[in-house]
Nucleic acid binder design. Structure first.
Lengths: 229, 229
DNA sequence: ATTGAATGTGCGCAGTGTCAACATGGGGAT
DNA sequence: ATCCCCATGTTGACACTGCGCACATTCAAT
């Protein structure tokens, strides 16, 4: 009975684990961190948790659901990283500058997470969106563009990272730093800018560039986006 | 010696196939088109080609090499789509406007390909870059930034799509439409802009948006990038 | 204590990547 | 034309994966 797991939240105090779903997810997250989405293998996670493979099927309908669970965790960590970046810099006195600082910080945090956790980042954006979190389900609303002139959203709470940028943009408009007519789609465009930077500098030959150059590119990319808006 | 090309699909006149590598790649491309990188399964490709699974190992060291072959094909198709888009619109009389039109067309072609061939697009950017084509191998040169002030490249001929945008930018500089000091990294930024748009509108809940909205977002995204440069 | 629903276990099936040993036959040296 | 080499294909097997089925164990409500 000398199992490797000793304490913490996953006690395994007998036949029943008590928190298997969580334990499995954590194990899967660990693999994903190291090897990306491909490294998420159900049997492995079960093995690492000290439980039979089929036990996992009591908590996940199939392999994909495990992946989705990992995506969720990753998304939360993404948001956390962005929030950290937000809180990191010192606020500007001018409200307009401050809003802009926040937008830039949000974008920077996004890229920073991608670099810090490439495995998780790749896992988050992997395969279609069938059964995923992100931006939420009510796309119907998105379709018709709402009265405020931008994509509504912040569905549940999953897409906090998205709303961070979105809110900063709202402030910019409120403070007159961004013409209201340009508000529409600005969030998506900003998001796509930082996402593109992340992916290219991570999964392309560009990944071999020295870090300083990458940092320059990221700065430039974000500046271009902010300028262009 | 006379007949050996006849069939593009597969000759199979006897024990030896004659063009297995190509046939396998084609089969794999077909699966990838329909189901993305995950759909590239070596045994399946062999089966579809009417050959034993292990025969593939005479032409590909392992599964990954097959995927790389598909990536190559996809890259070529990407470039083709972009070139089509370039040739599609009518040229502007003013050279500066023309260069700008080309840059925009290149970007639009990029996104258009992503929408037209999502499976291949996802395959191209899948997993690390170990043993891939793209941007080429000489990153050392990239590191030090060259005299012209932008990332050199056009390695072999694989990254034609990249060079299409890069050349348009060069023209813009030559014609005084873009300050030379902003030329640096502009290609990467432009590329990342269109890439981000493609990925987000393809692999996110945003994918459920109606096509018109997507088109609007793409337009806006590209405009922002061009403006920001 | 009984019992039913959760939860976990073993076993098996189909399918995949990959390797080793063997078969075939096309093309160059003779 | 002949012969032999070796690139190209084939069969068989191993390890591993996702997943379903029948059975075991436990917790909780009766």
């Amino acid at each position: 009975m000398a199992s490797e797991q000793a304490a913490g939240t996953s006690g395994r105090r007998g036949y029943h684990h008590g928190d298997l779903r969580n334990a499995l997810t954590e194990a899967a997250v660990e693999r994903a961190r190291a090897g990306g989405p491909q490294a998420i293998v159900l049997r492995e996670a079960a093995r690492a948790t000290g439980v039979s493979s089929t036990a996992a099927y009591r908590h996940f309908a199939n392999h994909h659901e495990l992946v989705v669970a990992v995506k969720d965790r990753g998304l939360a960590m993404l948001a956390a990283t962005m929030r950290d970046e937000l809180a990191g810099g010192e606020p500007c006195s001018d409200p307009g500058d401050e809003a802009l600082r926040r937008l830039r910080a949000a974008g920077l945090g996004y890229v920073r997470f991608a670099f810090a956790e490439p495995g998780l980042f790749r896992t988050i954006f992997h395969g279609g969106t069938e059964g995923d979190p992100m931006i939420g389900r009510r796309q119907a609303a998105l379709a018709a563009g709402d009265g405020e002139g931008h994509l509504p959203g912040t569905p549940d709470e999953s897409e906090e990272s998205y709303s961070l940028m979105s809110r900063a943009l709202d402030e910019l408009v409120a403070l007159g730093r961004l013409p209201a007519e340009r508000r529409k789609y600005s969030d998506v465009v900003m998001w796509s800018a930082v996402h593109g930077l992340s992916v290219l500098l991570l999964d392309t030959e560009l990944a071999h560039l020295p870090d300083e150059i990458k940092a320059d590119i990221v700065r430039r990319g974000i500046d271009v986006a902010l300028n262009g808006l």
